[in-house]
Amino acid sequence: MIEIDTLCKSYDGVEVVRDVTLTIQPRTITVIVGTSGSGKTTLLRMINRLVEPTSGTIKLDGEDNRSLPGYELRRRIGYAIQGHGLFPHRTVGQNIATVPSLLGWSKARITARVNELLTLFQLDPAAFAPRFPHELSGGQQQRVGVARALAAEPNVLLMDEPFGALDPIIRAKAQDDLKAIQKHFGTTILLVTHDMEEAIRLADMIAVMDKGCVVQFAPPSEILTKPATDFVATLIGTSDRPFRLMSLAKVGDAVEPGSANGLAIAASMNQRDALAELLWSGRQALPVTAADGRVLGRITLEGLTARAGHSSGHPA
């Protein structure tokens, strides 16, 4: 659990972060969204004390983050940044081993951990550990950056625009991978982005920041249906709102009895995908199948449109 209490930061009298109070539940993904200059990165960097707050406190699992020297605190908290920040003169293996080495782990334990993480990120340890970062693709570098941040088994992972340098297709894959990794390790993730789409895709909770203040802290569906300020509404983009909302709900939740013809859609897909398929194939209904291939029923264009409006009692 991360408890941020009345946190302020000012540079030369200019307040960049104002009076932020947030409680982040363990084992969740919280995404801080804001435009550039909203103070989101400063807020993130105060958690591992890359930036020292002007006033206010931060507690990690009940312990004030100033009870340790900054560098020792940072070894316990994962940190991944845009453009990955890999050390160009060290191999992938050495990069991932950075924090475990600083903590003085045994060689065998470090090797085992490096191999475990590389395997988890779908990089063959034998092939990738001895390579240098410049020999990797952008997506691979990004994965190694996250693997390095997770190397010392931190409870908390801070990520500053970690997918900013990736192209859209690789980015979507990286986001899915991050969700899977988070489930696997139960890490508490705090991620900063300017991309609302990314926030909705990843977050359990979204904190929207504007001019140094958190203007709304809520689950994605609530951000979409009840934006607290005009600024939040602008960030969502009103024309995309119904589709973004649909992307949060699963096909399985909109199954109706009956049958339909043609290619089936999996219940685990989101409703936006189903709508796209309906419109594209010009059909009124699609068969829905479970993971084992069993037909569960159908999803209809009519049913989906009825659910699309925010007054339709969408599950929050």
Binding site: N48, L50, Y71, E72, L73, R74, R75, R76, Y79, I81, Q82, G83, H84, G85, L86, F87, P88, T98, V99, L102, G145, R148, A149
Partner: peptide, 22 residues
Amino acid sequence: PQAAVDAARGVGMTLWQRLTKI
């Protein structure tokens, strides 16, 4: 690279470690 220096700080290297290792 600025990102490497920032990352070195972020992973908990001391001033001296940053200098000698990065």
